[in-house]
Design a protein around this nucleic acid. Structure first.
Length: 266
DNA sequence: AAATGAGGCAACCGCTGTTCC
DNA sequence: AGGAACAGCGGTTGCCTCATT
């Protein structure tokens, strides 16, 4: 589980992340975003490679990461998706909100692989994922229809829990942030805009699913303020990092990134 | 109580895809 | 067009925990 800390030939630290390192990374990403993973550790005061920071953020520190045991529903969905997609863990992960590809991959190898040999796709499940009925969802030629399954699978998870999402950031922002691994957090909104976290119930907009598990942490209150997110972090002493920009080149890239973010929000 | 082996999982490695110049 | 830089992905490793002997 935990690797012995060591340094590589460039003096960059490897192995287990310490709480201090976690705090630095969370500090930085929540405030400035991940505008460049390679530059990030330098500005965040971390002796890590960008890759390591990215992985740590995605798999562990990102606010919407769901931890804990996999439900039966999730297991069946993973088995379903793996049967059709193979080892495309990131694609599978997209249909399990809050779960990371790494976590699913580990879970597969540790728990599900043995089950998969006996797993028969539709007959084993016994019900149509989307409708919950016993009807089989067949394509016209009787073969498996991946689009149908993905659609159904997404509905299965999304319909199983009340879904909260934020009107801000927009789907385009989410898309942009997801693409750069800032999934689930609009750092500017959380830092600057008090009403950025107000939520609403939505239907089937899977574009927003990265935000859902995170916001579900606030379930019970349909509306939440940025403080709902900020206060726990403040208690940990997070969110007040020093200004990261100390050289002209990085300042330019950072400025460009922020300008692009502004453009997306307009 | 100590030794051992299996399972679980965080993290690393290296390859591939994408974007930019 | 092609090379460099970067991000993303999947395979693999290595250490810890816990059950078993």
């Amino acid at each position: 589980m935990v690797r012995t800390p060591s340094c590589d030939k460039n003096g960059l630290k490897k192995g287990t992340w310490t709480p201090e390192e976690d705090k630095k990374l969370v500090d930085y990403v929540t405030t400035y975003g991940c505008w460049n993973w390679r530059q990030l550790p330098k500005h965040a005061g971390l002796a890590r490679c960008g890759k390591s920071c990215r992985l740590r953020w995605i798999n562990y520190l990102r606010p919407n990461v769901r931890r804990g045991n996999f439900s039966q529903e999730e297991d069946e969905l993973i088995l379903d998706l793996h049967q059709s997609l193979g080892n495309r863990w990131s694609t599978i992960a997209k249909h399990l909100p809050g779960r990371t590809d790494n976590e699913i991959k580990n879970h597969w190898h540790s728990s599900l692989k043995n089950r998969s040999t006996n797993f028969k796709l539709k007959p084993a499940v016994g019900t149509n994922l989307k409708t919950g009925s016993g009807k089989e969802d067949k394509s016209t030629n009787g073969e498996f229809n991946i689009d149908s399954l993905l659609d159904s699978a997404t509905h299965t998870i999304l319909e199983s829990t009340p879904i909260l999402t934020s009107p801000l950031p927009s789907s385009s922002i989410i898309s942009s942030l997801s693409h750069s691994d800032c999934s689930g957090i609009n750092f500017k909104s959380f830092v600057v805009e008090d009403d950025a976290c107000s939520t609403q119930l939505i239907g089937e907009n899977s574009c927003d699913f990265w935000t859902q598990p995170f916001l579900q942490d606030f379930e019970g209150s349909v509306n939440c303020s940025a403080d709902d997110f900020m206060n726990p972090l403040r208690e940990l002493g997070i969110l007040y990092p020093p200004c990261p920009i100390d050289d002209e080149e990085s300042f330019w890239f950072y400025g460009l990134h922020m300008a692009q973010t502004d453009e997306l929000q307009l």
